[in-house]
Amino acid sequence: MFEGLKQMFHVPTMAERERAYLENAVDRYDLELRQREIDRGRFRRRSSYPY
């Protein structure tokens, strides 16, 4: 019963979001592009502070 509620309110971790993004690549070139985007910080939180 509570397992369904946990899944309903689950917030994906950064690693889960990155994996899902990579899994949606359509070919090798798309996968490489996505890997570079992740390496550049696509899913990392950006600080709202300028320093």
Rank of each mutant, 00 (worst) to 15 (best):
F2M: 12
F2H: 13
F2C: 04
F2G: 08
E3R: 13
G4V: 09
G4L: 13
G4Y: 07
L5E: 05
L5Y: 12
L5S: 05
L5D: 08
K6D: 05
K6V: 03
Q7S: 12
Q7P: 00
F9R: 12
F9A: 02
H10T: 06
H10P: 07
H10A: 09
V11I: 11
V11A: 06
V11N: 10
P12D: 03
P12F: 06
T13V: 03
T13N: 05
M14N: 08
M14R: 15
A15M: 07
E16W: 14
E16M: 07
R17H: 04
R17V: 13
R17F: 00
R17T: 14
R17A: 14
E18L: 04
E18W: 03
R19D: 11
R19P: 00
A20Y: 06
Y21T: 07
Y21M: 11
L22P: 08
L22T: 05
L22G: 01
E23D: 15
E23W: 01
N24M: 14
A25S: 13
A25R: 07
V26M: 07
V26K: 13
V26P: 03
D27C: 01
D27Q: 01
D27L: 04
R28E: 08
R28A: 04
R28N: 03
R28P: 00
R28L: 00
Y29Q: 09
Y29I: 01
Y29G: 04
Y29T: 02
Y29V: 01
Y29A: 13
D30F: 01
D30V: 03
D30L: 03
D30M: 05
L31N: 00
L31I: 00
L31T: 01
E32Y: 01
E32S: 04
L33I: 00
R34N: 09
R34T: 06
Q35D: 01
R36A: 11
R36F: 03
E37R: 14
E37N: 09
I38V: 15
I38H: 10
D39R: 14
D39L: 12
R40K: 12
R40L: 14
G41T: 06
G41Q: 07
R42G: 06
R42T: 06
R42M: 15
R42L: 15
R42F: 10
F43W: 10
F43D: 07
R45L: 12
R45W: 05
R45H: 07
R46D: 07
R46I: 13
R46A: 11
R46F: 11
R46Y: 02
S47Y: 04
S47Q: 05
S47A: 09
S48N: 11
S48H: 05
Y49R: 15
Y49Q: 12
Y49S: 12
P50R: 06
Y51W: 12
